[in-house]
Structure formats: structure tokens, C-alpha cells
Amino acid sequence: MTDTVTKTDLAEILYMEVGLNKREASEFVSVFFETIKAQLLAGHGVKLSGFGNFELRDKKSRPGRNPKTLEEIPISARRVVAFKPGQKLRNTIETYAGSRSQ
């Protein structure tokens, strides 16, 4: 069973741990993600040390197919966002994974 963490949960952390009031906490979490998004839309990757890097990759157009009708439809050239986890996050995961499997 897994829980899902949302912006509301992150705002709660800022309220509890940083002492922002509830309105500030919720606004900060929204602005944080909106700002990362705006940077990505402006063509900038975002490197968050301790977490990972959001990178942009341009993909060439390629032939695709509608899997239902088998009709060929070209997939247009596009830019995609990729996330590359940093060393610290990978180490944290290793530690948790170790405690899970034992």
C-alpha cells in the first residue's frame, strides 16, 4: 500500500517545519513548482542539488502507429522533460531499499 503526497502535504511540512503560515506555505509550494515549470518552458533545465536534475531533450519526428487501427501516424518532433536523480537521492533509496528487503 502506498500513500500519495500532494502539494497540500508539502505545504503542511512548511507550516510545521519552517513556520510559514498556512496561506504562505500553500502559496510557496505552488510558486515553487510553477517556477520550475516556467524555467523548463523557457528552455532551461533545472538542477536541484540533493534531489536531481530536470533536463530537456529534443526528439526527432518518427513514424508511429495507432495500436488499435494499425494506421500509421507520424509522431511529430517534440521536446520532453526527463528527470535524472542525483547521487544523494539514489543513496537514500539504496538505504531504504536495504531496510525493506531485510
Binding site: L10, F32, G50, L89, T92, Y96
Partner: peptide, 21 residues
């Protein structure tokens, strides 16, 4: 705040839980 968000997100992912923004 940035540090707290990043730490909480890391712990959530490592714990096998999902984050949805």
C-alpha cells in the same frame, strides 16, 4: 522551504510512496 520540500520529496520516493503535483 526549498530544502524541506526536497527532503520530504526524497524521503517519500525512497519510502516507495508516490508524489503527485
Amino acid at each position: 522551504s526549498v530544502r524541506e520540500i526536497i527532503n520530504h520529496m526524497s524521503a517519500t520516493i525512497a519510502n516507495g510512496d508516490r508524489i503527485e503535483i
